[in-house]
């Protein structure tokens, strides 16, 4: 007797399925793909790690604490669930891009929460940008070289709400000025080996809403002048809301706060 799943109230079946099963079902045919898409299941958190040979997705669904991990290779994907590794293939999927495009299309309003560029060739980053047009947080991994980090930053920063990089990518004053005046929500630099040298003008022309820099070299005099100007000036026109500088050089607090009334609360 032929069985026809299409005759069922399929939305209710899909609602009850685990994520891995849902994705396996979506790969069966165009129809199953569209059914999964129409079921409008939301993913709670998606992390993506870009490596030289594969792209890894870690997917978590809200409240159910179901976490599964996919490794996308060109001709197949590896799915890790329930401590088992499964290999899936699909005849017309011959590139990582085919798999990821399928995955991204079955969940509406899918935004990658965390995109970590671990190792990849620069030209491949264009593909990554096409596949993942938006992410909340972009990390360019600390194992990446300084030159790669710089190129990857310029390629990918437009897709991210928040960027974290682990190398000082300022080659000269022009670089510094270009980066610090970008219209970014949140940028964190974390390089404890090559400190970021900041001047007063850098802080005054800053256009990033939240900036975090480690480690920073800045003089007490520059900090003192910045504080005074910031307190005196029209703060509503100054975009940065939070500047966090972890200092490389030792500063004298009295010098930084000279001429400013202040109170130590705790």
């Amino acid at each position: 007797m032929p069985i026809c799943l299409l005759s069922l109230p399929i939305e209710e079946v899909l609602m009850s399925m685990d994520i891995g099963d849902l994705i396996a079902f979506s790969v069966c045919s165009k129809r199953t793909k569209n059914l999964v898409k129409a079921s409008n299941r939301k993913m709670h958190r998606i992390e993506v790690y870009v490596e030289e040979r594969y792209i890894r997705f870690r997917v978590m669904e809200r409240n159910y604490y179901e976490l599964i991990s996919f490794h996308f290779f060109d001709s197949y994907i590896e799915l890790n669930r329930n401590d088992l590794v499964e290999v899936w293939r699909k005849q017309d999927f011959t590139q990582i891009a085919h798999w990821i495009a399928h995955f991204m299309s079955i969940f509406d309003d899918l935004i990658v929460d965390y995109l970590n560029i671990v190792t990849a060739s620069l030209y491949y980053l264009d593909t990554v940008k096409q596949l993942i047009p938006k992410c909340r947080r972009l990390h360019i991994n600390e194992i990446c070289s300084r030159a790669f980090t710089k190129d990857a930053f310029w390629k990918l920063y437009p897709i991210a709400e928040r960027v974290v990089i682990y190398k000082n990518i300022f080659d000269d004053e022009t670089d510094k000025s270009k980066i610090l005046t970008l219209n970014l929500k949140d940028l964190s630099f974390k390089d404890w080996e090559n400190s970021f040298k900041l001047e007063l003008d850098d802080l005054l022309t800053l256009n990033i809403a939240r900036l975090s820099m480690a480690a920073t070299t800045i003089t007490e005099k520059a900090l003192n002048r910045f504080l005074k100007l910031w307190m005196k000036g029209s703060r509503t026109f100054y975009r940065p809301k939070n500047i966090r500088l972890q200092l490389w050089n030792v500063v004298n607090r009295e010098e930084v706060l000279r001429g400013i009334k202040y109170q130590i609360l705790f």
């Binding site: 069922l8 209710e12 399925m17 685990d18 099963d21």
Partner: peptide, 14 residues
Amino acid sequence: GCKTVANSAKGKST
């Protein structure tokens, strides 16, 4: 019924 069908698909490959 729907949950039973979903359970029957648990862990299945394409």
